[in-house]
Design a protein around this nucleic acid. Sequence first.
DNA 1: ATGGGCGATACCCTCAAGGTATCGTCGCGC
DNA 2: GCGCGACGATACCTTGAGGGTATCGCCCAT
Lengths: 282, 282
Amino acid sequence: METRELRYFVAVAEELHFGRAAQRLGIAQPPLSRAISQLERRLGAALLKRDSRSVTLTEAGAVLLHEGRAALDAVEAAEHRTRRAALAVTGRASVVLATKAGASSELLAKLLHAYATEPGSVDVDVALCGPGEQERLLRTGRADVAILHHPFDDLTGLDTEELLTEGQVAILPAGHPLTTRRSLQLSEVTELPDLPLPRWPGNDGTYPDGPGPEAQSHTQLFQLIALGRTLLVVPDSARSQLNDDLVAVPIVDAPEVTTVIAWPPHSRSRAVADLVRAALRL
Amino acid sequence: METRELRYFVAVAEELHFGRAAQRLGIAQPPLSRAISQLERRLGAALLKRDSRSVTLTEAGAVLLHEGRAALDAVEAAEHRTRRAALAVTGRASVVLATKAGASSELLAKLLHAYATEPGSVDVDVALCGPGEQERLLRTGRADVAILHHPFDDLTGLDTEELLTEGQVAILPAGHPLTTRRSLQLSEVTELPDLPLPRWPGNDGTYPDGPGPEAQSHTQLFQLIALGRTLLVVPDSARSQLNDDLVAVPIVDAPEVTTVIAWPPHSRSRAVADLVRAALRL
DNA sequence: ATGGGCGATACCCTCAAGGTATCGTCGCGC
DNA sequence: GCGCGACGATACCTTGAGGGTATCGCCCAT
């Protein structure tokens, strides 16, 4: 199977529409139709059900969509890592560390400092990512290490070491009635009519429906809380970034959040190993 | 990058010889040379150093060899799993479980029984593998689950659950002086001049050099031990397969062996999940 | 009934991938 | 020191896979 075929199939499987998929791929629709049916013939499996008015995935098609995405990621990763390995020879080596913007900043600062003072350390490029984006960077080889948060991020297929486990707190506007409490239940904050949870853009850039305000950045979000428009449930360490307008109250029954350092399997990079070791020593 | 290019590069990188690689790929040498230099141009990186008498990998080339193998495995896995998903619809579904021939047979029997009695269980095809082979089957999608043994098998990039941790014993011919001992040190058995460790064929089918006898199967191996030609260091549970000719003596300082059940990341198979759950209940 | 949306088919064209012949270079043996 | 042989690169040709345009067939909505 060629990666071109996989890319074609993934495009159709995602769009569920040959015309749009072809447009996205920058080719005409007929060659795309042919490529897909050829792929189906070679695999000996129906991947799509063409229902004259709509296209749907078959069981096998759903499998190929998942596995194919992973395979395309792996190919892309091979390409990126090779390019970066070549760069490292003709000049300064560097590692790319992906981290969620605004999360674990204290831990990150300590890590960077600890690593930088090690002998043989290289430059660390920090990539500040939106939610879920870091995982993608790791899997496609655009990043070498990442700071992830279990159970929010999907760790399957990545090698990880746990760094820190902590509870979660609710971030509330100063003066809100709940700020007088010493602790809260999760159920008390998720369904507050006066403070609906904010909505984040999905991977396609659109917002889910709901009552909460649309958020783009952490600073904007904190401002929205201060204005009494929403609230937030975050790991304990985020307290350090609060100002006087905001109050944190522990939520006793929220799932624990584990901050992990993650890297792609089979990583042969000395720098990645050093970074992980530095992180474990913190 | 197309998988064809990757296959070409991996072939050359493994053979370190354009002619042989071309032969292996079933094409002529000139198009291969061209394909590789084209790949190098597109990546903007030298992958091979052509030293007029020999071909060697550059730093970037070594990275691409590793990552490229993983990517090719992922593509192959996508193909296999799709085919099997299609088969599962048109007839009986099944899972392929890979296990090392002759290892953990008791645990395996219990697992298969426990799973078979579960509601909704499907047929389990057991693939008996040579050393290291199971991992490959998993990564290339020809198997869905595997029983692996840490630290012998490489678990990076696989999801695992631990099933059993045990010490190791030396398997000696009955009557050997060491069989009178209640326990042994690892150093006492690895360098015995009268009982050299056996040699297993590598992935290429050839045997490494050394004094020990060449082994092909476990039964053959046990016979070789009984004949006083070699000895073996294996996990404790292998004792159950011994007959009167053989004696097991614990080795106190051998690394502990953990038997794990492993499956590829992102597995969406119900049967795999059920198998893992059954294994954990043992 | 009919027009429009959508995937499949028919047919053509182009270029990239593969083949053959040959060159350039470098060890090595006589 | 010379020529031979091994090996990768280059030159040039051929073919077919992949892409484009035009059009069909089918179904649903109006």
